[in-house]
Amino acid sequence: MREALVNFALIALLPLVALGAQAAGETYVVTLAAKAAILALAGVGLNLALGVGGMVSLGHAAFFGIGGYAAGIAAHHVFAGTPVIGWPVTLEATDQMPLIWLAGVLAAGLAAAAIGAVSLRTQGVHFIMITLAFAQMVYYLGVSWKTYGGEDGLPIYLRNQFPGLDTGDGMQFFALAYACLLAGVALVWQVARSRFGQALAMARMNEARLAASGISPYPVRLVGFVLSGMVVALAGALFADLNGFAGPSMLSWHRSGEIMVLVILGGVGRLCGPLAGAMLFVALETLLGGLTDRWQLFLGLVLLGVVLFARGGLMGMLAGRARHG
């Protein structure tokens, strides 16, 4: 009950901040709110693997970046007036976000299936390391892909379009990112309560019990990993359009760490934990980043404090212990 109230407050807070900033003429803050919404969406996606399924992946930047490149590549071709694929079939570029998202999410889903199929044969530290290694492979693929900017990445001169919206407008873009966040939260909420979600949670809590119940842990985890990667890819596509840039930095392991940090800040396995984490993260980055280039030192201290003293992250502090079942 209390967690539901906190969730509601967190969900309401973000648009209030954006609207208030808009009214005050602080368009930069609207952009920050959009950034928080997008990072929260990435966290919500990672939380499905990490919080529900217990899969500590340091490779989710790969999916974030694949989503980002989908947006960047589409914008690049639309801007240049060239097709994405010229031969054997011609695939014209589109600047319509729904199609770009579909492509990015499906590509990330395929990548997650391939990465997960191998990584999920291992557990614990090995799983962390192998997901990290796969993400670094994708990173170097991005760096070496000269067609799409290599290590310089791809600028997005004109934001991709969404039917009925002016995505160039900060407030409208925020609304779009926020709607995607709500959809992501709703999706993860629904998945977690479904039969599949129950099996995925048992894979985290007690794998032997899951198998003894007649449900094979491996494919359950794999499906969870793929769904998680797909949600994160949507966040990546939005992030690229927000920043007007898609590049290898989206794929780097720092990004995986960042998404994981905001999940841990907010509270692992808590539905709206990533919202709290992302808002705190963006606030710290903005406030401390203005004072010092070494702001991540202070982020590290905050993270340390949360992990040591607030088990369950911000959600643990705000809403008490997690309720299970």
């Binding site: 039969r195 099996a199 809590m205 007690n206 119940s213 449900i215 299970h324």
Partner: peptide
């Protein structure tokens, strides 16, 4: 699974028996 009630543990066994463990809709 120690952190959840016995009923939820047992329900998962019933689910294993009934199938549909890849069903993403509805509430278990």
């Amino acid at each position: 699974a120690m952190e959840i009630p016995a009923r939820v543990n047992v329900r998962l066994a019933a689910q294993g028996r009934a199938g549909g463990s890849y069903r993403l809709w509805g509430s278990a």
